[in-house]
Design a protein around this nucleic acid. Sequence first.
DNA 1: CTGACGTCCTGACAGC
DNA 2: TGCTGTCAGGACGTCA
Length: 294
Amino acid sequence: MPELPEVEVVRLGLLPAVTGARVSAVTVFDERSLRRHDGPAEDFVDRIVGAEFTGAQRRGKFLWLPIRPRRASASGEGTPREALVVHLGMSGQVLLRTREQDDRLTRIRLEIEHPVQGALRLNFVDQRIFGSMAVDALVSDGSIPSQVAHIARDPLDPLFDVALFSRKLTQRKTGIKRAILDQTLISGIGNIYADEALWAARLHYEQPTATLTRQKVSLLLAEVRTVLRKALAEGGTSFDAQYVNVNGASGYFSHSLNVYGQQGKGCPRCGREVKREQFMNRGSHFCPRCQRLR
DNA sequence: CTGACGTCCTGACAGC
DNA sequence: TGCTGTCAGGACGTCA
């Protein structure tokens, strides 16, 4: 369930620890966590051992660590052509640990050596195995992994194209929630923040996208950004800069949710009972008074 | 091309 | 106590 804010918190936590660090060993405990890797586990290990990470980047819910080409590593030059791509799926975590520290449900482990911070360990923990790690080629001038290329820019990206989003959105023949969960249209939004943003914009989750005015689209986009920024700020204040440790409820900032998981309680705006309905094999939480189908 | 939907996946937890 | 059933949903393949 990690969405954009949670993934960004992980990225910010990893950045100082992985930049310039070299991978000394990799252990794959469960090959299912390599579902998105094009090749066997041995190939994954071969490509990653000895690699030096140059940073940590993100688009939507995808996170990746670019790898400096081995031949150029000694001189500190060379543009990355591959990256370690991480998707947390439903329950994934990347836990930054010191050596010897273990975590239950670790599916993949990377031992890394940082020039300043020394020996560290990255435990990829994932209960439901919807997440994955993969080594993937960087495309489009080395700016993005091939398996992330089809993902739209996220609403916090300075290069997010509002006009393009607005046009594609209103051309869709579907409900607004399906649309904002479509990562090829706008990325980074999952079930929780979709419900929160729709509540803030007073939109019913099945409202047809074609009926939305330009103003309403603008309002929704503004609310999406507000919800994501707020969650990011809360996550940013609660995580330890030394060790990434995002997990379950504590990573979810649940104290500030207005409708998600609040079924049976009063709407914070009008007091009407918040409802939960089945939708896309998930739950949709909304206020029947504030969010009417029009 | 687009929209809709089934599938993957397992630990935590409630209830008997 | 120990077992069983239920629940959570991101991404993607497939089908109409």
